[in-house]
Design a protein around this nucleic acid. Structure first.
Lengths: 211, 211
DNA sequence: GATTATATGCGTACACTGTACGCATATTGC
DNA sequence: GCAATATGCGTACAGTGTACGCATATAATC
């Protein structure tokens, strides 16, 4: 929408590219990707662009707006899975697409749940879920409930995955002795989570088998 | 003007109660309860106790430790639901207990998921869930998966409830026009969520029907 | 080209945050 | 009464988001 009129008049060849909403958002995403969303401070973004802090505010309303822009950017990049004839296969494919996006860009979940913002660009996928539930014979209220179950599990799982990973890296783990009175928890704890690979998919299937 | 009431040096009866870990944590919980976890800053807690900021650090390692203390405090207050013969009823009762705690003290979920900390005091309830799943004939791996499904849905739902409530109060809602291309989402959106009352319970039952 | 209008960059300042350091006082043990 | 310890907390520092307003770069008009 902006700057499309290519009036290449003065080739001043700016040694430093001009700022833009796009560039600011992309820089913020880069930082979030490598250092986590907590590292996305206005100063950090500015310094990664080699600009002053307040320059960012020419292209972004405030930090909240920047986060929203980041969401829109990744939402745009999602490629919708191909349509499936089978309703449950359709829903599973969509949930897997969303989930893998959450895994690839873990910061998304924190922004979604903490800032309470959501990108509108994901709506087509949600609509497809509702359509599939409709085809499965669900009335609106139960469709909404199942959708809520699917998505909130996805949120919780993705968020927990992050914090678990962090906890594990920090090695702030509890001593196993704490679990002595709870044999089953202890066993689960010791089992680790290598085999968890397909847990998400299997749990979505569980939900769908009850839908 | 604190000391002005007592002209001589009060030897044993201080007009101000002494600080303690307990008092610090309780004060922090009070603030979290009424103003949200974001308002729980060291300065805010100190001022609510009428003490200096650094005094808190005599009873609490750091802010993280304070949050952990808060978790333990509410976990302690949970009353375990009575044992149920029926396994699914047992699990449902426990999940409802946890969920209602999350609703009553919304800040818990944020601390749990963001700080990545957890209170050990809730382990007895978790153990009961695993025991019930065992009685239902689940091997360890599928038991862990179902437990993960149950709890992560509970997390996601509780967290989303908060942010939705906040969004609603701020009235930062999207204009309905945005949903024109997505009739089912639009309908769901317009339906509101008054009837959502038992959604959590019904969804847990859905999960259990697939367990 | 010259002049004006606007868009953009950003330095400084302010009100917050957590907490390290070390001094002052209160309480306890002998 | 005196020493040892426990407790309270003032000050300082490095962070955070961002309001304000000046300086310059670019665009538009004459």
């Amino acid at each position: 929408m902006r700057g499309s009129t290519t009036k290449h008049k003065a080739k001043k060849s700016p040694d430093r590219e001009r700022l833009s909403r796009e560039r600011v958002i992309k820089a913020a995403i880069g930082i979030a990707e490598t250092e986590g969303i907590e590292a996305v401070t206005m100063r950090r973004v500015a310094s990664s662009l080699g600009s002053g802090v307040m320059s960012l505010y020419r292209h972004v309303l405030d930090r909240d707006d920047l986060l929203l822009g980041m969401l829109d950017d990744v939402a745009e990049a999602i490629e919708p899975p191909p349509l499936e004839r089978d309703e449950r296969a359709e829903i599973l494919a969509i949930m897997k697409a969303i989930h893998s996006e959450f895994r690839e860009h873990p910061w998304i979940v924190k922004v979604l749940l903490f800032e309470g913002r959501g990108s509108l660009l994901i709506l087509p996928l949600i609509e497809r879920i509702f359509a599939a539930l409709d085809r499965l014979g669900h009335a609106q209220d139960s469709a909404i409930e199942i959708y809520s179950l699917l998505l909130h599990y996805c949120y919780g799982e993705s968020l927990s995955f992050q914090t678990t990973a962090k906890r594990r890296s920090v090695q702030k783990q509890y001593p196993i002795a704490e679990f002595d009175e709870f044999p089953m928890i202890r066993a689960a704890y010791l089992a680790g989570d290598d085999w968890k690979y397909d847990e998400f998919e299997r749990n979505i299937k569980r939900i769908l088998s009850a839908a």
